[in-house]
């Protein structure tokens, strides 16, 4: 252990030091590049997914939600009329 550290001290004396050499090595360079690319792509992906979700969500809100509410209410009125008709024994009023 001691000899290793001495060696490191000597090499650092000669050159920029092991940390600098490691950080300048091609493996680290490629790793860094890949990491930053991934981060960039992920950021863009999240951003565009968010935008798509926003567009889809607002479109759904405008187009589909009113339809479901209206449809549901129409079903309820029909059911109510059927109930009334069966309770009172009279045909449901046609145009309500």
């Amino acid at each position: 252990m001691a000899s290793q550290s001495r060696k490191a001290a000597i090499t650092s004396g000669n050159d920029d030091g092991i940390l600098a050499r490691v950080s300048q090595s091609t493996v680290v360079y490629h790793g860094k590049k890949a990491a930053s690319n991934t981060a960039y792509v992920t950021k863009r992906l999240v951003k565009s997914t968010g935008k798509a979700a926003w567009i889809l969500g607002t479109t759904f809100l405008i187009l589909a939600v009113p339809f479901f509410i209206a449809y549901d209410r129409d079903q309820q009125i029909t059911e109510l009329e059927l109930q009334n008709a069966s309770l009172l024994g009279t045909p449901a009023p046609a145009g309500k």
Binding site: I62, L63, P66, F67, A70, Y71, R73, D74, I77, K96
Partner: peptide
């Protein structure tokens, strides 16, 4: 274009 009994909805 949906024409329900109490409302008309167009999208």
């Amino acid at each position: 274009d949906c024409i329900f009994r109490q409302c008309r909805l167009r999208g």
